[in-house]
Amino acid sequence: MSDSTHPHTPPVGAPALAIRGLVKRFGDKTAVNGINLDVPAGSFFGLVGPNGAGKTTSLSMATGLLRPDAGDAWVHGTSVWGQPLEAKKLMGILPDGVRLFDRLTGEQLVTYAGLLRGMDADTVHERTKDLLAALDLAKDAGTLVVDYSAGMTKKIALASALIHAPKVLVLDEPFESVDPVSAANIRDILTDYVGSGGTVIVSSHVMDLVQRMCDHVAVIAGGNVLAAGTVDEVRGSESLEDRFVQLVGGRNTSTGLAWLRTS
């Protein structure tokens, strides 16, 4: 695929992730409606939106998992769909709603992810040990992933995404069903990672978390980007949650379930 087939060209200055004109239709339904997005290098970027907004579809297309109907994404200037191998080397991906090779033990799964990336055995062994310890999975390293709890499964998937020390991390709903202690540990790891020059993109629908953790945010609904920028720019004087509801709409203003009142 040459660049001439793309209607858009990579932006100058090469942000960590640049999305240009991504479109995806499933049948009659347009899931992602030609979005543009720039994720600055070294930012902690939150992608928020209601259920079915197109977050997962957009991230899948931006990471090379789902072929877009139009548009492309660039990771540090490398086209995801033009030079997929080079682009994938720069990215660590935690997709949401996909299975893992869960008949492997946790240790085997992380090792597998490292070896698939073509890393050498010693580095893989070393990093697997470090990751399992950092994510508090060392005691369950030899347990099959199928026997893990939901939170542990998220953590082992995160470990698999981190093993090759990517420059950009794309995490789809990384905190879902993760316990508060592990979530805090993961946040520390991610903050360190951003501090050392890495870029993190997380999707979430927990506004509070995004407001506290991220420095940049984009609001997606109905397959369009409604707002994007630094968190302060997007929220203005309001809380992110209020601003989000304002942008997306759909709040119920009726009196609610009167019979549910206990007094």
């Binding site: 070896l115 390293a141 030899g142």
Partner: peptide, 27 residues
């Protein structure tokens, strides 16, 4: 079910060369 087990045994991954092909084969 399943008891907790710590790290140390990567099974078939030890037998195959540490390349993508070997990893896919071991898996």
């Amino acid at each position: 079910g399943g008891a907790r087990k710590t790290a140390g045994n990567i099974g078939f991954f030890r037998w195959f060369p540490a390349t993508p092909t070997g990893a896919v084969a071991a898996r």
